[in-house]
Design a binder for these strands. Structure first.
Lengths: 223, 223
DNA sequence: CTTTGTGAATTGGTTCACAGCT
DNA sequence: AGCTGTGAACCAATTCACAAAG
């Protein structure tokens, strides 16, 4: 049996960090769990969770191991505790201020989507290089010119950035955001960004995704 | 429909399929290569390609292995041939007809993006359940009601689907698309879809991505 | 019975080291 | 010299098999 150092918080430096893949699944568990808790279900099994997102129960348990020891053999996991533990590990047990650059259709879609705020991500600043958009109010936020980036990001304490600009300007805008103090960003433009090592990057590249899909489709046996 | 252009390649039975990860990188190579060829550069080395997208030259060569033997020691790869080979392996050496469901801001962003067509993906049909949108023309395409899905998808020969609808309706719309004969789809809604095995799925889940980013940011050492 | 937890085995992917070609 | 191709080694991630607990 594993020596359990603490009841509440492992905070074990020796304990390995969840892998990238595990982090992704923890997000998915969290969403399922919120639904499950909303239905008043207080206990949940790894099998339940696994079936909900289409993976095995063993995988679920392995992932949950990173959260500490909160399973009850023969019973399952307390829904509420699981949620809290996942939020803590994912670092979304607090609010993240987010800057959004490029106020086009994609940005409007992102602004409308209420799921972000619900999960701790608040869009606090908008930027666009187009003078005709500057000053406009979108979803209650004023659009600022790029020149004010440093100032506004400092004032709003934005730590993350969403890049919804055309490919040509993506690298320059990314540089500005990093310069203004942003620590991580999501790039929607289909270009590879070069960033300093201390800035995290997630690329959402729809071209790549569509090509993945085409490949998959072509290689799935037609029943 | 599926014809093996076997001019250059000896049918290699032992040759394994490129992994998911490799397929993703091939997309990235392709984009770089198109730029490189546009500059008139006819030969490219694995080191060049690797630096362009931030990975090692060995990784690039390993990936390119799946395309067959087209490197020239001491020289590099012929840009044009590499492009052709990647397009063939990714199955984008032809045009894919794509249906788009849910004509909101995200859909408009997708429609405006010209990169898809350039890479062989043509959006040929729009659907929306909102009667006020049905009949409207967006980027030259008429918005159809869901009832006409089967008919329109058959007529347009759409094989792929983009789901840009709210979470509540995502599963139902996915079922309809599958029923109408679509063979793969990209889901932008933050829900896990259940699909028959013969239908491919790519999930673009922004909530998960943002949570990944938050986690990364929190775990990168501040210089 | 049900369920969790986990070492061991396995599969998958990347990096290393070096042979061979230009 | 520079570059490709690839077995081997290494690392990461998943699955297996089973012990232990409610």
């Amino acid at each position: 049996m594993n020596r359990d150092t603490a009841s509440a918080r492992p905070a074990d430096p020796a304990e390995s960090r969840p892998s990238r893949a595990t982090v992704g699944r923890l997000s998915l568990y969290l969403r399922q769990l919120e639904g499950i808790l909303g239905q008043g279900t207080l206990k949940v099994s790894s099998r339940q969770l696994g079936q909900a997102i289409g993976i095995t129960d063993v995988q679920v348990r392995k992932d949950i191991t990173y959260l500490g020891n909160l399973g009850q053999p023969g019973i399952g996991y307390p829904t509420r505790d699981l949620i809290a533990a996942i939020r803590r590990v994912l670092c979304i047990d607090r609010e993240w201020a987010v800057a959004l650059v490029g106020v086009g259709n994609l940005a409007r879609a992102l602004l409308r989507y209420k799921g972000f705020l619900q999960r701790g991500f608040r869009i606090v600043a908008l930027f666009d290089a187009d003078p005709s958009k500057v000053g406009e109010r979108v979803e209650g936020l004023e659009v600022h010119p790029p020149e004010k980036m440093r100032e506004v990001i400092a004032a709003t304490k934005a730590e993350l950035g969403l890049l919804a600009v055309p490919s040509d300007s993506a690298q320059a805008v990314a540089d500005s955001l990093v310069n203004a103090g942003v620590r991580g960003l999501v790039n929607f433009a289909p270009v590879v960004l070069r960033l300093p090592a201390h800035v995290s990057l997630v690329a959402v590249d729809l071209t790549v995704q569509l090509e993945q899909l085409a490949f998959q489709v072509q290689h799935t046996d037609v029943d």
